[in-house]
Design a binder for these strands. Structure first.
Length: 395
RNA sequence: GCGUCGGUGGUAGAGUGGUCAAUUACAUCAGACUGUAAAUCUGACGCCUUCGGGCUACGCAGGUUCAAAUCCUGCCCGGCGCA
């Protein structure tokens, strides 16, 4: 059972610094949650995850259900012990795959859109692997094409076996292209699913081993977001996830609408967000936790964070730069290797490139969120935000 | 020396009269990536362009043809075979 305490609130904002206590340890919030979808942070050993001072690891229901199967993970004692990670853990519900394998599959649509995103009724994507009904989500496995059904109940059962400290209610992550009517209908369904998730979870977890987070949806619509915050917020969840689609511009505002209404004494997790600007805005709007695949995926693709913005280490100019990625960075990669070496490893398609790059990007984002936390505690948030963003995004 | 096969864009390698500035792959140069379908995907890749097109190109030089990377002749270079 989770205990959440708030140490400090930042005046004039919804930001707060606090602490979550789980049976596997504490999380100082705001915190960045490292994503280990398949019970591994891609390209890293668990020892490396510890060396990064990561606080929490989040795995995914859909992936572990398909492979190796939740029963195997349960036999290992849960996904944490399975991967030799003994700190706090979370699992996502599989709800995101309603989007990524559904409306978004095979398209350019992502959960973050530009403000001029076209709302269209063609929510039926012919090649999609997932279909949503009131009962649940029917999936075709991306591994072998076999058919599967996730329901709020089965998601709770699988997550129970995966054994994370914090788990999410089954929700539908909608597409930013879905029209208002669909968002509204989907929201009602996600609310029903939230109640079903709670009910099934309570029946399974009689000793309160796991904390269940409800998920607030509502697309980009204030009315729907607020309705969701009120209705989901009124249910006896241990914390809340804020999911779905935003534009970059309204991450701060839309998330703020939600957090202004959610119970203050429970942690709020902004699902799937992890770029510097978004993290600042979301913390300011009252979020405590963030998970995001961006640091590790971008790392594998050669895009690396520096204080002066992103660089693509594969660019020709780096091949003979015998300096660290970021001169003041204290990560393993920067204290041992040069840009030239990284550029060489990427060009040679060496696996170590992915590891060294992931270490750097995760270090960068983990430290960023730690610094944001510190800046709330010593009241320097606004100054830190301004200085960081001016330098990071200057061009 | 004779015979034979072959010489195509950074590389390999298609193409064997028009639909060819030339398939494809790799390399190169950029870009994207936000609860991981992802060590993935997208674009550019002869020169110039008012983006309509123009110019120069398939070893070199000629020729045939309305039209040649593609056919013919000579030369140069390489592989193989025979002397």
């Amino acid at each position: 059972m989770l205990k959440f305490s708030i140490h400090k609130k930042l005046d004039g904002t919804l930001a707060r610094a606090g602490e979550i206590e789980t049976k596997n340890g504490k999380i100082l919030t705001p915190a960045f949650v490292t994503v280990g979808t398949k019970a591994t942070v891609k390209s890293l050993t668990s020892e490396q995850i510890r060396s990064l001072n990561a606080q929490v690891v989040l795995a995914n229901t859909y992936h572990l259900y398909l492979q190796p199967g939740e029963d195997i993970v349960a036999k290992a004692g849960g996904f944490g012990p399975f991967m030799d990670w003994h700190g706090p853990t979370m699992t996502d519900s599989g709800g995101f795959q309603a989007f990524s394998l559904g409306a978004a599959f095979g398209t350019a649509v992502s959960k973050i859109s530009t403000s001029d995103v076209e709302v269209s009724d063609t929510s039926v994507n012919p090649g999609q692997l997932a279909k949503v009904t009131d009962e649940g989500v029917t999936f075709k496995s991306h591994l072998d094409g076999s058919k599967h059904l996730f329901t709020p109940e089965s998601s709770m059962e699988i997550q129970w076996k995966l054994g994370a400290d914090m788990i999410f209610a089954f929700d539908e992550c909608t597409s930013p292209t879905a029209p208002y009517d669909y968002q509204k209908k989907s929201l009602a369904r996600t609310y029903e699913w939230a109640k079903r998730s709670l009910e099934r979870h309570e029946a399974l977890d009689t000793e309160k081993q796991q904390s269940l987070f409800g998920v607030v949806q509502g697309g980009r619509y204030q009315e729907l977001r607020e309705e969701a915050a009120r209705t989901i917020g009124a249910l006896p969840f241990d914390g809340f996830g804020i999911g779905g689609s935003f534009t970059k511009e309204d991450i701060g505002t839309a998330v703020g609408w939600v957090n202004a209404l959610l119970p203050e004494d429970k942690p709020r997790h902004l699902l799937g967000i992890g770029e510097p600007l978004d993290l600042f805005n979301a913390v300011e709007a009252g979020c405590d936790l963030f998970d995001c695949i961006a640091p590790t995926r971008m790392a594998r693709h050669g895009t690396l964070h520096t204080k002066d913005g992103r660089i693509n280490i594969k660019n020709a100019k780096f091949v003979d730069q015998f300096v660290p990625l970021d001169e003041d960075c204290t990560c393993y990669t920067c204290t041992h290797h040069t840009r030239a070496y990284l550029a060489h490893l990427f060009r040679g398609e060496e696996m170590t490139a992915a590891s060294l790059a992931s270490i750097h990007n995760l270090h960068f984002i983990l430290r960023l969120v730690e610094n944001i936390r510190a800046s709330i505690l010593d009241d320097s948030f606004h100054q830190y935000k301004k200085e960081f963003l001016e330098r990071y995004y200057k061009k």
